[in-house]
């Protein structure tokens, strides 16, 4: 029973990681790549670390007491990943927009409008080098 749960977790995790890189390669611009790249990978990694946590708990249940620490540490790593990854994605998206990377195929861009209202020439200046 437990084996199959672990297998499932690993499989889902790997699948989403794989989808992440495929999206990273296929999508047209930074923002869409960010969707695929950082977040599918995060979702996949959640499942992979879930597999590790469950594995640790399973061993713990089997009598190897120290393996509980494996779960705890993996959980801390997971939390750290969940805190940092979206923040990094946000920082990069903001930086990309400010450095003048235009979202391709965009149907609407409110931020661009907002910027142009408040600071008409800012984009050209920022885009030097």
């Amino acid at each position: 029973m437990m084996e199959w749960v672990l297998y499932a977790c690993l499989a889902i995790g790997l699948l989403f990681n794989f989808l992440a890189v495929v999206g990273l390669l296929r999508f047209p611009d930074v923002y869409t790549r960010l969707h695929a790249g950082t977040k599918c990978a995060t979702f996949g990694s959640i499942f992979l670390s879930l597999a590790v946590i469950l594995y640790g708990l399973w061993r713990f249940y089997d009598g190897n007491e120290a393996m509980a620490a494996l779960s705890v540490h993996a959980f801390i790593a997971l939390v750290a990943l969940l805190l940092t990854n979206p923040t990094g994605a946000h920082a990069i998206a903001r930086a990309a927009h400010r450095s003048g990377v235009v979202p391709l195929q965009a149907v609407v861009d409110d931020l661009e409008e907002h910027n142009q209202q408040s600071m008409p020439t800012s984009q050209e200046e920022k885009n030097v080098e």
């Binding site: 805190l83 940092t84 923040t87 920082a91 903001r94 907002h114 910027n115 600071m119």
Partner: peptide, 19 residues
């Protein structure tokens, strides 16, 4: 839009303070 010369967006600041 007034951009602070230093530092990053408030989101990053809050997360940095937590980390």
């Amino acid at each position: 839009m007034t951009m602070p010369d230093e530092g990053l967006s408030p989101v990053v600041r809050v997360i940095a303070a937590m980390l």
